[in-house]
Simulated scan of single mutants.
Amino acid sequence: MSETSLDPTADLAKAQQGDDAAFTRLVGPLRRELHAHCYRMLGSSHDADDALQDALLRAWKAIARFEGRSTLRSWLYTVATRTCLDLVESRGRRALPMDLSPSSDRAVLEDPPRTEIAWLGPYPSDTPAASYEQREAVELAFVAALQHLPGNQRAALLLFEVLGFSAAEIATMMDTSTASVNSALQRARRLVADKVPEQSQQQTIHALGNERVQQLVASYSTALEQGDADALVALLTEDVTWSMPPLGHWYSGRAAVMDFATEVPLTRCPSWHNLATTANGQPAIAGYLGMTPDSEHTAWSITVLTLRDDKIAAVTSFIGPEHFELLGLPLTH
């Protein structure tokens, strides 16, 4: 099952005759990029798991009918896209707190999790093999913007802008006309342009340099661990936002963010231990909460930092130990 295929053509023939090991070898090199596509479509790594599993099952059942009119990669993206479109229709879109309500001016101390909401989740994208473009295409702002698009526009934009398929190829993949694809692309580009900053996080990180990015992450971690509000506020832009799905309230502007930070993570949370990590191609921090500095600290939140110039412009804290498991991080520290 895990052997590397030396002859994809032979494996295709074997797969079409019912050899599941040959099929596994065929799709193995494409699994990661297909999973990332499903995440961009659905906004959840767990939903992407389900979609990819379903898509590969559909592909396995249909492989005997694959006639080679397109590449196997294109065919698999067709199956995966259609699977995701079915899920988009049945499950709806994923959200961040700012999609649902205005920001809060002051810290909300009683803020129970809103479990009825399908929340956007983080993605473990930053591996040595991930290209610049792959990391850019899973940045939080981009994936969050995609969730505002109807499924067909979302799919068309991703297939064209991220994956490089032509409008004619996409029309075939989505069983529609080229004119419809071009129309969907035009509408999708307008909305995404309104919601996504002109400079991507990859461009910002490149401009700052890895050393400076690491310094910002370390300074944020230290300020939180030491309860130093002044040091924390010095890192933030004037229009910084802080959100914490599955909590519904969020904060916008340095004053509101600092009121929240001072009242909750800097005061009411006894002790923090933080680990630097990455998610969505962006710098992130795994936050562990403990009762005392010397006690065992347990997984609390994965905080993804969005940078602008030399400051932190957005803090998105995904609360829950399931996000640590997703990123391959320990549950205690």
Rank of each mutant, 00 (worst) to 15 (best):
Q16D: 05
Q16G: 10
Q17A: 15
D20M: 11
A21C: 10
A21H: 12
A21T: 13
A22S: 12
F23C: 08
F23Y: 11
F23I: 09
F23D: 02
R25K: 13
R25G: 03
R25I: 11
V27A: 01
V27W: 00
G28Y: 06
G28P: 00
P29A: 13
P29W: 10
P29K: 13
E33T: 15
H35P: 00
H37V: 07
H37E: 07
C38R: 00
Y39D: 03
Y39T: 01
R40D: 00
R40S: 08
R40L: 01
L42K: 04
L42S: 03
L42Y: 05
G43F: 01
G43S: 09
S44E: 06
S44M: 02
S45Y: 02
H46K: 01
H46I: 01
H46E: 04
A48T: 02
A48H: 02
D50I: 09
D50N: 04
A51L: 06
A51K: 02
A51E: 03
A51I: 04
L52S: 01
L52T: 01
L52A: 04
Q53H: 09
A55C: 14
A55F: 09
A55M: 14
L56S: 11
L56E: 10
L56W: 07
L57C: 15
R58P: 00
R58W: 10
A59G: 11
A59H: 08
K61W: 12
K61S: 14
K61P: 10
K61V: 15
A62P: 03
I63D: 07
I63L: 08
I63Q: 08
A64M: 12
A64G: 14
A64E: 13
R65K: 14
R65L: 10
E67L: 11
E67W: 04
E67M: 07
E67K: 15
G68M: 09
R69H: 13
S70I: 11
S74Y: 05
S74H: 13
W75A: 11
W75I: 14
W75V: 14
L76K: 11
Y77P: 05
Y77M: 15
T78F: 03
V79Q: 12
A80F: 07
T81Y: 06
T83P: 01
T83V: 12
C84M: 03
C84H: 07
C84Q: 07
L85S: 02
L85V: 04
D86L: 08
D86K: 11
L87H: 03
L87C: 02
L87W: 02
V88Y: 02
E89P: 00
S90A: 14
S90K: 13
S90R: 14
R91P: 00
R91F: 07
G92T: 04
R93W: 05
R93Q: 14
R94F: 02
R94N: 08
R94Q: 10
R94H: 11
A95Q: 12
A95T: 06
L96Q: 09
L96E: 09
P97A: 08
S103K: 05
S103T: 11
S103R: 06
S103F: 15
S104P: 02
D105L: 09
R106D: 09
A107M: 07
A107D: 12
A107N: 08
V108I: 12
L109R: 07
E110G: 01
E110F: 03
E110S: 03
E110K: 01
D111E: 12
D111T: 05
P113M: 02
P113G: 01
P113T: 01
R114W: 03
R114S: 15
R114A: 15
T115G: 06
T115F: 07
I117V: 15
A118P: 01
A118M: 06
A118C: 05
